[in-house]
């Protein structure tokens, strides 16, 4: 009764050909836009920083949805999303918490 039976990969977790293309095009557009924002010199220094920040944030969301398969459509997408949210929450707790604590670490020192 023995037969080789490699572990299966369910399809629901993976994107379709079309969704990868959409993600790729969006990523390229966002990347080109970032370079354009710097090279065109259309914005002032701080404006450029802000534009780059927004584009980077959108870029991250595009990657998460189209390449890391997060979303609400299938169970497995929801699992990916939940894992990401929990991780992000923990990282946020640690980083914000450490800044909060260590920033305050000299409160009782005369140094001020």
């Amino acid at each position: 009764m023995s037969e080789n039976h490699t572990t299966s990969h369910e399809g629901e977790n993976h994107g379709t050909y079309g969704s990868y293309i959409v993600g790729f095009v969006l990523a390229v557009i966002l990347t080109v836009a970032s370079f354009a924002a710097v090279l065109s010199k259309a914005f002032s220094f701080w404006q450029t920083i802000a534009v780059l920040g927004v584009l980077a944030a959108v870029q991250m969301v595009v990657h998460l949805i189209f390449f890391l398969h997060m979303g609400m459509k299938s169970t497995s997408q929801r699992h990916n999303l939940a894992a990401f949210v929990v991780t992000a929450l923990m990282v946020a707790i640690v980083i914000i918490g450490y800044l909060f604590v260590l920033w305050d670490a000299q409160a009782n020192m005369m140094a001020g």
């Binding site: 909060f100 604590v101 305050d104 670490a105 000299q106 409160a107 009782n108 020192m109």
Partner: peptide, 8 residues
């Protein structure tokens, strides 16, 4: 006791 202030 590591010395953080009252708020922390």
């Amino acid at each position: 006791t590591m010395g953080s202030g009252a708020d922390v």
